[in-house]
Amino acid sequence: MSYAYFPGCSQQGMAAEFDRSARSVCDRLGIALSEIPDWVCCGATPAHATSHLLSIALPALTLAKVKDADAVATVCAACYSRLRIASHELREDAELRARVKEAAGVECAGEVPVRHLLDILCNDLGVAAIRERVKRPLAGLKVACYYGCLLMRPPKVVAFDDPENPRVMDEVLAAAGAECVEWPYKTECCGASLSLARPDVVCKLANDILREARDAGAHVIAVACPLCHTNLDLRQADVARQYGVRYEMPVLFFTQLLGLALGVPEKGLGLNRLIVSPKPVLEKLAAA
């Protein structure tokens, strides 16, 4: 399988460690990613909240640049959702295809499937292949897998797993040797798109998620979205101020945890870029 890789804007800024660790992991697992040349932003929530045509035309511009690939690979759950929805609507709606052609100046029929890396790991590679390549199992590490809202919703368009109780991330990290806890906030929203405008609202949602993960006994939270990551990692100081609770809960991209297990050197994972350091937890684990 050949994958045209769409990194997404956050992955070259705030969440560069997501991009870096994803590339490292794919390299270890023999998954060939080739970055789409001159890709553009998916438009995120501001586009679909402003203009339907814009929200489809922006992803179409990028999708039209994909040549000779079996699938488009994404890591960010929000980019995944926008690209996947655009390609779905372009396939279904000939009139929309014509309007997008007029707006974007390119033709895009949405034929190349848009896939999330978790989908690729689970369904193309398979967890057995991951297990075989694990060098340093994450034994004893309790992980709360947080899927957030957009990875599995809406199920008519995006889901590759149960939208209410997804398992793919749990399976991938279990193959890496971690113990994934059962908890009820796997798919609750963190308020991602409101991070800039209403941090007070986001803090309430982040506090709920952090509290549930802690109460389920998790040492760390694993995420698949840079917006979830910012809200849960960076905003822990705000949560402490607003709710008086210091969680000190490390929040890692699933690719960072998988990379650790595969023996990727730390430089290839960017663990030092996390705000809440995972070092104390990981060192305790190594000593045990």
């Binding site: 804007c9 956050s10 070259q12 800024g13 001159d38 553009v40 932003c41 438009g43 995120a44 929530t45 501001p46 586009a47 909240a49 402003t50 814009l54 922006l58 409101l194 800039l196 405008a197």
Partner: peptide, 15 residues
Amino acid sequence: ANAGLLGSVKSRGRV
């Protein structure tokens, strides 16, 4: 915030 993000995309192609 919505207008800000779209403005950034319009002028740079990325956020």
